[in-house]
Simulated scan of single mutants.
Amino acid sequence: MLATDTDHRTDVAVLHLRGELDSDTASQLHKLLADLLERPVPRIVVDLTDLKFCDSVGLSAFITCKQVIDARGGWLSFAGANPFLTQLMETVGLSRYFAIFPEVDDAIAAARI
């Protein structure tokens, strides 16, 4: 099961994902992202540290919210991906559209530059 929560640090929402992100849990992610996209300027860091698996259905949730984020002048980045997830994101081309950082604090710091 995918357990998620959000943590707001100043103007950045940190979304912590755990477990597996697949067709069974993607709807939960869609709901959380929809709530975060209601912010005037959505700035989201997705913490993948405890995410063990992700399939194409899970990845599509991030892709579908990108247009909304771009239109509002915000951004979405990833942090803490394990080697499997890093390779998966590079293989499907997400690394061209989303920044991937080693740690959540790195992603937040990069946003401040």
Rank of each mutant, 00 (worst) to 15 (best):
Leu32Ser: 13
Gly80Asn: 08
Ala79Cys: 11
Phe53Met: 15
Arg43Cys: 14
Ala13Ile: 05
Asp47Gln: 02
Leu51Tyr: 03
Arg72Val: 09
Asp47Asn: 13
Leu32Val: 15
Gly73Ile: 12
Ile108Pro: 03
Ser60Trp: 01
Ala71Glu: 08
Phe101Gln: 01
Lys52Leu: 09
Asn82Ile: 03
Gly19Trp: 04
Glu90His: 10
Leu36Cys: 01
Leu21His: 04
Ser95Thr: 13
Leu21Tyr: 12
Glu38Thr: 14
Thr25Val: 08
Phe84Ile: 15
Phe78Tyr: 01
Arg9Val: 15
Leu85Gly: 08
Asp47Arg: 01
Arg96Cys: 01
Leu33Arg: 07
Leu29Trp: 03
Thr86Val: 13
Ala26Met: 12
Pro42Tyr: 01
His16Met: 04
Val45Pro: 12
Leu17Pro: 06
Ile44Cys: 09
His16Arg: 14
Ser23Ile: 14
Leu15Ala: 04
Gln28Pro: 00
Phe98Gln: 05
Asn82Ser: 10
Arg18Tyr: 05
Asp105Met: 01
Arg39Asp: 09
Ser77Trp: 07
Arg43Val: 05
Ala3Glu: 12
Asp106Arg: 07
Asp50Glu: 14
Gly93Arg: 10
Thr86Leu: 15
Leu17Trp: 11
Leu36Met: 08
Leu2Cys: 09
Arg9Ala: 07
Met89Trp: 00
Trp75Phe: 12
Val92Thr: 15
Ser95Leu: 04
Glu20Arg: 15
Leu59Cys: 12
Met89Ile: 05
Thr6Pro: 08
Asp35Gln: 12
Thr91Tyr: 05
Phe101Ala: 00
Ile108Phe: 01
Gly74Glu: 00
Ser60Thr: 07
Ser56Phe: 02
Pro40Tyr: 03
Asp7Gln: 15
Ala26Cys: 14
Ile69Leu: 12
Met89Gly: 02
Val104Met: 04
Asp35Glu: 15
Val41Gln: 13
Leu36Asn: 02
Asp22Leu: 10
Asp22Tyr: 09
Thr4Gly: 08
Arg39Tyr: 08
Ile44Tyr: 02
Gln28Phe: 08
Phe53Lys: 14
Glu20Pro: 02
Asp50Trp: 07
Lys66Pro: 02
Arg39Ile: 08
Asp47Phe: 06
Ala34Cys: 05
Ala99Thr: 11
Arg39Pro: 03
Val104Ile: 04
Pro102Asp: 13
Thr91Phe: 14
Leu15Pro: 06
Asp50Thr: 08
Phe53Ala: 11
Asp7Ser: 13
Gln28Asp: 13
Ala81Asn: 02
Phe98Ala: 01
Thr10Gln: 08
Thr4Val: 15
Leu37His: 04
Arg72Pro: 00
Trp75Ala: 02
Val92Asn: 14
Leu33Ser: 03
Ala3Gly: 06
Ala61Arg: 07
Ala3Lys: 13
Leu88Gln: 10
Ala99Arg: 11
Asp47Lys: 09
Val68Ala: 12
Lys66Phe: 06
Arg43Gly: 07
Asp70Glu: 15
Lys31Gln: 10
Ala110Phe: 10
Pro40Thr: 00
Thr25Asn: 11
Leu21Asn: 08
Phe53Ser: 09
Leu76Cys: 11
Phe84Ser: 14
Cys54Arg: 08
Val41Glu: 11
Ala81Glu: 06
Leu33Thr: 00
Phe62Pro: 13
Ala26Arg: 15
Leu2Trp: 12
Arg112Asp: 03
Gln87Gly: 11
Leu76Arg: 04
Asp22Pro: 03
Leu33Gln: 10
